[in-house]
């Protein structure tokens, strides 16, 4: 087991290096981080030459990469060109907010897709099955910024005007009030809904088909033959085996959730990391972009590692292959 974990850990290192390489060259090739200064007519030629030198843009790209890498490894992720702050500090200020949003939508996604997937699998090809499918695909097919704006119009603006209980349109806490946990939950509802509906369809469908597959297996037939109640068969035997492979899929989906968070945070003015990425991408503030990409990717790699290891614990066959 230890050998397996070490092997998996070692594999992660080139992956992380690869991520940093891909990200660095893409981001670096994107344009001129000095643009933010040059578009400013109040800067003189000397100003710009001085700034360029101060940031090391006069060196070739690969030199800049190793320069960046050497520092990144020891935990110095550099300073933002725009805010002059340490990238790690900036990420720390936003990461929690993004994780709150993502965590909540993740929980919502999971609850809805488990419920719908199980229902769908046990009622295959029934009208209700179609309805569930239709519902789960609804959110998946909707452009998220448009969906977000619609929700704001209906639940934050119209409901308020009609005197109905309404939801806040933007931010994490009320603009004028005191922050509280309860307010946080209210502010979470709309963005988390938008974000979670993206993945509901996928998980519902996946759970449905893996349930169908498991139900067809011999041990379920045996259980049925033993006269176990349908409920016990479904939940104790089939469900457990159907959900485990779902976890792998979910882990692979974390980057997609971040992608969704970028748009959602923008629409709902959520003070998260995705929005920060976009605000700094426009000006190619690459220490920040690199920091975010690297952090997110590391999270993904770690999650995958955890999933693989727990999988290996459950199913020893994997370790051997």
């Amino acid at each position: 087991m230890t050998r397996y974990i070490i092997k998996r850990l070692l594999i992660s290192i080139p992956v992380l290096l690869g991520i940093s390489l891909v990200a660095f060259f893409l981001v670096q090739a994107s344009g001129d981080p000095m643009a933010v200064y040059i578009s400013n007519p109040n800067l003189s030629a000397e100003d710009i030459a001085r700034l360029e030198k101060a940031y090391g843009f006069d060196k070739p790209v690969y030199v800049q990469y190793f320069y960046w890498l050497r520092k990144a490894i020891v935990g110095d992720w550099g300073q933002s060109f725009l805010t002059h702050q340490d990238v790690l500090l900036m990420i720390r200020q936003r990461l929690g907010n993004t994780l709150i949003l993502m965590g909540t939508s993740f929980a919502i996604t999971l609850i809805i897709s488990l419920a719908l997937g199980m229902y769908s699998a046990t009622h295959q090809y029934s009208p209700a099955d179609y309805l569930v499918t239709a519902f789960s695909f609804f959110g998946y097919s909707m452009p998220s910024f448009w969906f977000g704006l619609m929700l704001i119009i209906i639940f934050a603006v119209k409901f308020r005007e009609w005197g109905l209980p309404y939801l806040p349109a933007a931010g994490m806490y009320p603009i004028r009030g005191e922050p509280s946990f309860f307010q946080l939950i209210r502010h979470l509802i709309l963005p988390a809904t938008v974000l979670s509906l993206i993945s509901v369809a996928k998980y519902t469908r996946y759970l449905r088909s893996s349930m169908l597959e498991v139900i067809g297996q011999d041990y379920i037939r045996t259980a049925r033959a033993k006269g176990l109640s349908e409920r016990v068969i479904l939940w104790r035997h089939a469900f457990k085996n159907a959900v485990i492979p779902l976890l792998t899929i979910i882990m692979l989906d974390i980057p997609q959730l971040f992608s969704g968070a970028l748009i959602t945070e923008q629409v709902f003015a959520w003070p998260g990391m995705g929005r920060m990425y976009w605000e700094h991408a426009v000006w190619i503030d690459y220490p920040v972009l690199m920091g975010i990409i690297l952090l997110v990717s590391t999270l993904v790699v770690l999650c995958n590692l955890l999933a693989d290891i727990s999988y290996a614990i459950v199913d020893p066959r994997i370790r051997l292959s």
Binding site: A29, G31, D32, P33, M34, A35, I38, S39, V282
Partner: peptide
């Protein structure tokens, strides 16, 4: 072009630059 490219400087193909 996106702002960073449009107003980009001499290095890295700035349109304005």
């Amino acid at each position: 072009y996106p702002a960073a490219t449009l107003f980009g400087g001499c290095a890295d193909n700035g349109i304005f630059g």
